[in-house]
Amino acid sequence: MIPMLQLVLRDLWRSRWPAAYGLFLLATSEALFAFGENRAQAVASLLTVTVLVVPTMTLALGVSQCFDWRYCAELLLAQPVRRGAIFAGQYVGLTLVLSLSFVFGVGLPFLWMGLGSRAAAQALAVLLAAGILLTLVFGALALLLGTASEQRLPALGRAFSLALFLCVVYDGILLAAATGLADYRLEKPLLALALLNPVDAARLLVLLKLDVAALTGYTGAVMQQFFGAGAQSVALLPLALWVAVPAALAYRAYQRRDF
């Protein structure tokens, strides 16, 4: 797998997109401090950016990379190399590079601005963890889309639709349900629905560190209980599933695919 990983890393390095992605995040993060925000507020704003940009960019870059890599993969498969090794190299390479770009872009300004209070530092740590988890989830989804499609543009189209759906439309549905069906006891279904979406689960994971005051203040008994204890592990579970299931599906598609 290691030689495959090296090949993938070289390929990604040459494309320069991961660097651009990291620099974009860096600029955003830096701009927040330029607006004079304190660290907790900066983490909060970065959270909104993260849950929008990380899924979209990971999907787009991941799908593109699949197609860039395809010729190379076809050549490799003619050699005595296991398919699993090529797939693993591709997945690990992609998510490693994008995670590093993310951590670099979001985290670097905190290095020279200082971490601030312990609470702010913890919130940043959870934000970085959530970003990496999202990269893992959407890296797997990207490989699935990239492997299952024949052509680049339809695959990219699907990737963007999926990102748009999970990042924005899904929340719109949640909001519509929360407001339109307010007369019913929908707290538990709403909570479950939110946790089903990896983007929302990641967002809740950070909120639990960042906004406990707001979360415990304005909700009914069910959410009160949920946010009160053990919610972090509950939010982690769907994220883990969202990494495992698409990765497994992508691997299966990769094995069956006739290159």
Partner: peptide, 20 residues
């Protein structure tokens, strides 16, 4: 304002949709 009416919507705190 929405939260005042529909407390459950707190689930969407800091969502990009809400920023929009």
């Amino acid at each position: 304002l929405l939260l005042g009416e529909y407390p459950q919507a707190i689930l969407l705190l800091r969502s990009p949709l809400v920023s929009l």
